[in-house]
């Protein structure tokens, strides 16, 4: 009896041990360690360090280069979110009818989501390469002169944005289609009877009812733009030209592992943490605990 009880008390922890050990070592400890490192000037990858308080944050705040990376990240995020979600909603609205081949269409749309950002980068690099890229060739035919997609800062940002929208489009459309199919059509019909124009019906009914879905996609697309762009940027532009595509996460990686400014990179991680915490709080507030415990 005693052994059974002991076993009963002991067993859950046995089941949890592998996960908890890994999470403590590779998730919780590094979170704490990031905050600690951000207050040090670190040399030789942690072998020598000096406490400097908030100096790393002060140097970041005074560094126009860092503000530039923040700005670039915000621009890319804004366009990927607004442009990407807008196009996705439009496609979902058009595809939300009894069309032939609808399921094949969905398959065609969503597959890029399975690709790594790195492979997406390779594909887009190939299409936009000066001299031989297909898009490069087509834009030359249309505009008459060759566009330097990788050498012109604005075009390089456009390229990264296009690749990101392309990769996330199918994912967004699948969610919007699910949302549209669950809409209460009675509300739309009631609005028509009340004399609402198509335009009003869209904004005041459809768009309003879809807002929880838009909200979820907003968060996933922001997360993508802030944290998942590393692979694509490393392959396509390496942050250039002239730091035009040097987003925060890429700058962090280079400061940490190419220039070995460990403390400074940790401070940048802390700043990105604030973004994660913000998104997490918003997400939990809006969906509530219902989703988590309701099963």
């Amino acid at each position: 009896m005693y052994t059974a009880k002991f076993k009963g008390r002991f067993l859950p922890w046995l089941f949890l041990t592998p996960t908890l050990v890994i999470l403590v070592v590779f998730l919780y400890y590094p979170v704490v360690q990031t905050f600690v490192l951000s207050t040090y000037r670190v040399a030789f990858l942690g072998l020598r360090k000096k406490f400097i308080g908030l100096d790393n944050f002060v140097s970041l705040a005074q560094d126009t280069g860092y503000w530039h990376t923040v700005w670039v990240t915000l621009i890319i995020t804004a366009v990927v979110v607004v442009g990407g979600l807008g196009i996705s909603l439009a496609i979902a609205m058009l595809a939300n009818r009894d069309l032939r081949g609808g399921s094949i269409y969905r398959v065609l749309l969503i597959w890029p989501f399975a690709l790594s950002p790195a492979v997406t980068g390779v594909i887009f690099l190939f299409m936009f390469s000066p001299g031989f890229g297909a898009i490069n060739y087509l834009t030359e035919q249309i505009t008459g002169s060759e566009l330097n997609w990788l050498g012109n800062p604005r075009l390089a940002i456009t390229l990264i944005i296009l690749a990101s929208i392309w990769r996330n489009l199918g994912y967004n459309v699948v969610f919007y289609l699910a949302g549209l199919q669950n809409l209460n059509t009675e509300v739309l019909e009631a609005a028509s009877i009340d004399g609402a124009t198509n335009w009003q019906r869209f904004w005041k009914v459809t768009f309003a009812l879809l807002s929880p879905m838009s909200f979820f996609l907003l968060i996933t697309n922001i997360t993508y733009s802030f944290f998942d762009l590393f692979g694509m940027i490393d392959i396509v532009t390496k942050g250039g030209p002239l730091d035009a595509t040097n987003v925060m996460i890429y700058n962090l990686y280079r400061d940490g592992f190419e220039y070995y400014k460990t403390g400074l990179a940790a401070a940048q991680s802390v700043i990105l943490f604030a973004v994660v915490v913000g998104l997490t709080i918003i997400q939990f507030r809006t969906t509530g605990t219902r989703v988590h415990y309701g099963g």
Partner: peptide, 17 residues
């Protein structure tokens, strides 16, 4: 509460670990 933390922001300490 940690489900959203991306591995990218933990690269540094994890590399040291």
């Amino acid at each position: 509460s940690t489900i959203f933390i991306p591995e990218m922001v933990l690269l540094l300490p994890n590399f040291l670990t």
